[in-house]
Amino acid sequence: MTIKTLGAAALIAASATVAHADDWTAYTYSSVSTTSAVKGMQRIVDRVAEDTDLTIDLHLGKTLQIASADITQAVGDGIIDMAADFFFSGSVPIARVLNLPMLIENDEEWAKAYEAMEPTLVDAFAQQGVVLLGGYRYPEQTIFTTFEISSLADLEGHKIRVTSPEQGKFVEMFGGAPITLSGSEVPTSLERGVIEGVLTASAGGAKNWHEFLPYNYRFAVNYGNSMIIANEDSFDALSEDTQTRLREIVAEEGPATTAAFLEDEEAQKASQSEAGMTLVDAAEGDAEMAGEKLAPFWESWAEENGPEYVEALATVREAIGK
């Protein structure tokens, strides 16, 4: 299977014929074929082709006329059959409980929290006409800057690019100014001083932007994750055996993608350090202080969104013992 480019006309045609049970169109938000995210999806596509009668054509980010924030909706509407979606929180906002800053602080906590939340996530995606097959996680989001930083106090007065309102709240709490930009805008914005830092992973955005970011404060703010999803009608049209095999393959390749990201994180940290980036360990006491400061925000976030969110937060906190 190869990654193809699909034009507007072809996309319209695809949306009209999406129900072919044995010929799917898949999409990933990532536009770089060498990332762990795309490699993982390609492995899924290849293994499905080997083990079933299902053929999946995988398309890179920006090759279809689908905005990153609209991927889950596009799957639910049947424009595409399958996707890896990092920007699903607009369509399934309750999933953002897993991304609250300082709530989940390590791999063990993530595993427990996700397991506890999975039934809720399955139901929430189903309400969008989408089957949640699995997913993968990026390494911890840390702080990369153009200015020297050795503690959270150094964020004060600086403009930091964030990818969610929750990350924005974290930056605000330490005196910074959060700014939301697309990934394509980051390099130019760093050059022009529109932003002075980003929250990302070494194996994530920093892999492309490291030349503009001489400092990395190794403080884990939160985690970001992607969901691997399928259109409900397309999935239901598959044979039971193919459905089972597809789920099994995703269940294996999702964690494998996470592991690849974690391995790449260490490689990128070393590479970025060798290239001149200054990596600074989190200052003693910063994590405990930040956790205490953010805990009331978790509660207000949940209460403002409604009883389901309060319940989701309680489920996660019970699972990780916080």
Rank of each mutant, 00 (worst) to 15 (best):
M1A: 13
M1C: 07
K4F: 11
L6K: 10
A8P: 00
A9I: 09
A13P: 08
S15L: 06
T17K: 09
A21S: 15
D22Y: 11
T25H: 09
A26L: 05
A26C: 07
T28I: 12
Y29S: 10
Y29N: 10
V32H: 13
V38F: 06
I44H: 00
V45W: 10
V48M: 14
T55N: 14
L64Y: 00
D70H: 12
I71F: 04
T72G: 04
A74W: 08
V75I: 01
I79H: 03
I80P: 01
D81C: 11
D81W: 05
M82W: 15
A83L: 10
F86A: 10
F88L: 15
P93K: 14
R96L: 13
V97W: 01
D107L: 08
W110A: 10
W110D: 04
E118V: 05
L121D: 05
F125C: 08
Q128G: 03
Q128D: 06
V130G: 03
V130C: 00
G134I: 02
G135C: 08
Y138P: 03
F147V: 12
F147Y: 11
S151M: 02
I160M: 14
R161D: 05
V162L: 09
T163R: 00
G168C: 05
E172M: 11
G175C: 02
G175P: 04
G183A: 12
S184N: 12
V186P: 06
S189L: 13
E191M: 08
V194W: 00
V194D: 12
A206I: 04
A206W: 00
K207C: 09
N208Y: 08
H210F: 15
Y215H: 15
R218W: 03
N222G: 01
Y223P: 03
Y223R: 09
M227R: 09
N231A: 10
S239W: 08
E240M: 12
T242Q: 08
Q243S: 11
T244D: 14
V250D: 04
A251R: 12
G254V: 02
T257H: 04
T257Q: 08
E266H: 05
A267S: 08
A270C: 04
A275M: 09
M277Q: 15
M277C: 11
D281A: 15
G285C: 12
A287Q: 06
E288L: 11
K293P: 02
K293G: 06
P296L: 13
P296F: 13
W298G: 06
E299H: 14
E304M: 15
E308K: 13
L313C: 07
A314P: 01
T315Y: 04
T315C: 04
